[in-house]
Amino acid sequence: MTARVGVVTFPGSLDDRDAERAVRLAGARPVSLWHDEPDLRGVDAVVLPGGFSYGDYLRCGAIARFAPVMNELVPAARSGALPVLGICNGFQVLCESHLLPGALTRNSSLRFINRAQPVRIESTATAWTNRYTAGEEIRIVLKSGEGNFVADDATLDELERSGRVVARYAGDAPNGARRGIAGVSNEHGNVVGLMPHPEHAVEELTGPSTDGLDFFTSLLAHLESSPAAPAAIG
């Protein structure tokens, strides 16, 4: 059976269609989920896409965390049953929802960054990175004004100790992110937040590479190896 991957659209989402295309190219079926409907429609995984949910009022992701769709998503993700990938603004939503630690703040340059970015995969022990190899350097797109990952030293030390740093910027972090962190996971490895955009690097014609596609094929490999997991999703 073809895996069904929900992509949430919030008011202000920009990359939901790109995420749906990446899901389709990976071999899964994208399912559009609307922020105002508290129903995940029985999907096997969810992508929270990039953009400016609710206009980034208050803080990036601060209002989106209260969207009705999150009422089902948060407990399912916290239990380890539901794989969730938050990209850019989606990463911010996951942090605001306390599914991931830390916060994303203004870039250290106080400028919006839009460029092809080399990223090093640090952990392959997640639902979204198992098709990579540890230490592999990939090239995907970074486009954000508030991508500076911050957390206190104790939290950062715990992320390092438990292998939950998923990706780092190769070289200096262009946004000032602490310890060069570009992405992290929760303790189960089913929830991943990533500041750069893998969905913009899935086709040679439109991206700097196809290096981002394996985030989505990793999900399919994870679902195939864990056939009982989707059945636990409401």
Rank of each mutant, 00 (worst) to 15 (best):
A127D: 02
E37M: 12
G193Y: 08
F91I: 08
I140P: 01
R111F: 09
T217F: 05
S144N: 06
L82F: 02
F66N: 14
C95R: 02
S79M: 08
T2P: 10
S97I: 10
L100N: 05
S209H: 04
I113V: 15
A177H: 09
V191T: 10
P208C: 12
P198F: 04
G6E: 05
V150G: 07
G42A: 11
R131S: 07
S53A: 15
D172T: 06
A221Y: 08
D15E: 06
G212M: 02
D16G: 06
I87W: 00
L100E: 05
S53E: 14
P208L: 07
G27C: 03
A229P: 07
G90N: 07
V165G: 06
D16I: 06
G27L: 02
A167M: 03
D157G: 13
A151K: 01
A28P: 10
F10M: 06
P49H: 00
C60A: 15
E204N: 12
R164T: 15
G189C: 13
P49A: 00
P11S: 11
P174W: 09
L73H: 08
A26W: 03
G171F: 00
A229Q: 15
G180L: 01
N186P: 14
A62E: 12
I233T: 03
A77K: 01
S109T: 12
V46N: 07
S53N: 10
A77R: 00
N186W: 14
G12F: 11
A134F: 08
F149N: 01
G12V: 13
R24H: 15
V69I: 11
V119F: 07
N148G: 03
A45P: 07
A81D: 11
F10W: 01
F66W: 15
P230F: 10
I181Y: 01
G27Y: 01
Y57D: 15
R120S: 11
L194F: 05
E37K: 13
S218C: 03
I113M: 08
I87K: 00
A76H: 11
E224H: 13
L205K: 09
P49D: 02
V93E: 01
A77W: 04
A28L: 09
D36R: 04
H35C: 01
L156G: 07
C88D: 01
M1N: 12
E187K: 13
